[in-house]
Nucleic acid binder design. Structure first.
Lengths: 250, 250
DNA sequence: TGGCCGATTTGACATAGATCAATAGCGAAA
DNA sequence: TTTCGCTATTGATCTATGTCAAATCGGCCA
């Protein structure tokens, strides 16, 4: 058996009743200074907090389905989600993974354009969409934050198109691991131990590959000494420059 | 030689000097009520018009390159553009095509995330990015229009990911033609005669295929009686339900 | 601790689409 | 109108990845 790693990031959901009566529950939010809320001052946050409804979600449960009326926006407080679209015959494309602090519900018009499903026990903060839209004119900081989020998402969607349209299986896999490492690092130091809350099948559906190809690819990266598999679905990046070489984009 | 089609949409660029001195040049703009400007009232348009600089572009010329400082936003007044990203070894992914009325310059942060190149002689309206950003707080209608645009783009990027990750060559091609037909139709009646300002190579780079596969695919759709090729790079959709069947998404 | 069940890995083979290689078509210039 | 050069089409192979199938692993529950 392999070593357990030092700091296993178990998801510890803050207790629902942890909010002090009368105080602003958002103020104590775990993602207070990462999510969209980060750009708001205390009085603005106060306004939002009245609208927010937290909710917990078990593995495999969906937040909403593609085609549902898009009446809510969400902030992911803890856990991880996958977003996906389906073809009628069941082929699936995962368009993204969400982690704590991420925003959910962009890309709506009237209906959600994808299904959002929990990869692990997760907690969300739910906001009524129309109310938020109503607040935007009075909260230009919020509006511009949303616009920036949308731009960032768009840029990363375009990067993903390049990956899906033009990269080989190995390149896709290496790019994916590096991308994950960078996202999990946030603004801190680059991270080399990555947790994979998603299955090989999910990775395949994200990269436009089959489970088998993903598995073979992981094995090959491992044999090349670029990564190592750790207990509990962790991957350790052992040779970042090497992995970047395989990823192929500059 | 085959028939010329009835209404060959030659690009006729309005003469640059067509603006009356003293009047608002935007008021007479060809895309006045399609582009982002459509949500603005006359006084707001007046403010913008002072910032706008028109410019013409020949086939093959670029508006900007991936990595350039993103200091301008653009509205495409006439013509067509392709947007693409490159890998170091020259592999290319076209992330989108733009037509008259479309907005260009979303998906910026500090640098453009893709190169924009003219597919035909085109005219653009250029706006300084920082000035526009400064106006957003005072023009919530413009801000919300941009947000909506970004959402729409995002949704279509996700649809494209599904196409690139999970569809067969024939499905991609059929989807592409239907998508083009719908875009060119705008809000009017569905269109069945589609102009293709882009080469087969461009279509391939958009769909994640090679030129040869695109060409074979077109031939196959033609043999099946779903489409017909017309003079001057036009394609006529002859059996829309049939084509939708091939496209495969519901 | 042992047994089960789904997830992962590995292997053998099939194929959609890529690659390499000729033509054939078509538009611009002379 | 003819020619030239690029673009598109078609054909003959090749290969990366998909498909089918069989272990093997690993987590969870009794």
């Amino acid at each position: 058996m392999k070593d357990a790693h030092p700091t296993g990031p178990r998801v510890t959901l803050p207790h629902p009743a942890a909010k002090l009566p009368g105080s602003n529950p958002c103020a104590a939010c775990a993602v207070r200074d990462r999510a969209i809320c980060a750009v708001l001052d205390d009085s603005e946050l106060e306004q939002l907090s009245g609208l927010a409804r937290p909710s917990d979600l078990d593995v495999g449960r969906t937040v909403f389905f593609e085609g549902d009326d898009a009446d809510s926006l969400y902030v992911l407080i803890a856990g991880a989600l996958k977003l996906y679209k389906l073809l009628p015959d069941g082929r699936r494309q995962i368009t993204g993974f969400l982690f704590a602090g991420d925003f959910l519900g962009l890309a709506f018009n009237e209906e959600y354009q994808f299904t959002a499903e929990a990869l692990m026990p997760s907690r969300l903060c739910r906001l009524p969409r129309t109310k938020i839209e109503g607040l935007l004119p009075e909260m230009p900081k919020l509006a511009s934050r949303l616009l920036n989020l949308a731009f960032t998402e768009l840029a990363s969607a375009q990067t993903q198109m390049l990956l899906l349209g033009r990269k080989t299986a190995q390149e896709r896999l290496a790019s994916f691991l590096l991308h994950l490492a960078d996202r999990l690092a946030g603004q801190g130091d680059p991270v080399s131990l990555i947790h994979l809350p998603m299955s090989r099948a999910d990775i395949g559906d994200y990269l436009g590959l089959t489970v088998e190809t993903v598995s073979r690819g992981v094995t090959k990266l491992k044999s090349a000494g670029l990564i190592a598999l750790r207990d509990g679905n962790y991957i350790q990046i052992q040779d970042r420059p090497g992995l970047e070489g395989v990823a192929g984009d500059l």
